[in-house]
């Protein structure tokens, strides 16, 4: 009779998951430039964009730059999709050590619902469909009230090649 393997201690589990997430986000210099952070609850991610003056696009209103909003949503979508690819490998302990392989954006459509206020913004992305080659991701962003979105977007992505399909990969 083999001894039952005890579950991974909670602190080790959190450290491992947070480590993978921070390596993933840390692999994008532009996310750091904007100051985007990710809040994790289990596998659920919320992208957070803390406000800073640099993010302003219209000093008169003042409002966040539309391009900042687009960048924030696209980053949230890419990280969510990469995270969803990484998760099963990470949990089974078979992968996640080759470094993040990022999907490539094919197209991205942003719907500006109201102007972004000069305060923190949040975004949550949902992988609507994920196949071997393509994925479709929807993302919603809000500020003070979760139900009052200020922007939403849909993007199509080319999935990263699986390194296990590449014999040359170490």
């Amino acid at each position: 009779m083999s001894p039952r393997t005890s579950p991974e201690p909670v602190h080790a589990l959190k450290e491992r998951r947070d480590g993978h997430l921070s390596r993933l986000v840390g692999s994008m210099p532009y996310a750091a430039f904007l100051g985007i952070e990710f809040d994790r609850r289990g596998d659920e991610l919320t992208a957070v964009l803390p406000f800073k003056d640099m993010l302003i696009g219209d000093p008169m209103v003042p409002a966040l730059h539309g391009g900042v909003t687009a960048s924030f949503l696209e980053t949230a979508a890419i990280v969510e999709l990469s995270w969803s690819i990484l998760w099963p490998e990470m949990e089974s302990g078979t992968g996640g050590d080759v470094g993040p392989r990022l999907p490539k954006t094919i197209d991205f459509t942003i719907d500006y619902l109201r102007s972004g206020l000069p305060r923190d913004a949040y975004a949550r992305a949902r992988v609507v469909r994920s196949g071997r080659r393509f994925a479709s991701v929807h993302v919603e962003a809000w500020q003070d009230n979760r139900a009052r979105l200020f922007a939403q977007a849909t993007g199509h992505f080319l999935m990263p090649a699986d390194p296990r399909d590449d014999p040359g990969h170490v």
């Binding site: 210099p29 532009y30 996310a31 730059h65 391009g67 687009a70 960048s71 696209e74 890419i78 990022l102």
Partner: peptide, 27 residues
């Protein structure tokens, strides 16, 4: 600018910053 790179493996700018440029230019 290195700070605007989205995928360092490929050394390419993040799509979002290209989007920001196009948005500003459109405006």
């Amino acid at each position: 600018d290195e700070r605007l790179v989205g995928d360092p493996r490929r050394g390419v700018l993040h799509g979002g910053v290209i989007s920001a440029l196009m948005d500003t230019c459109g405006g």
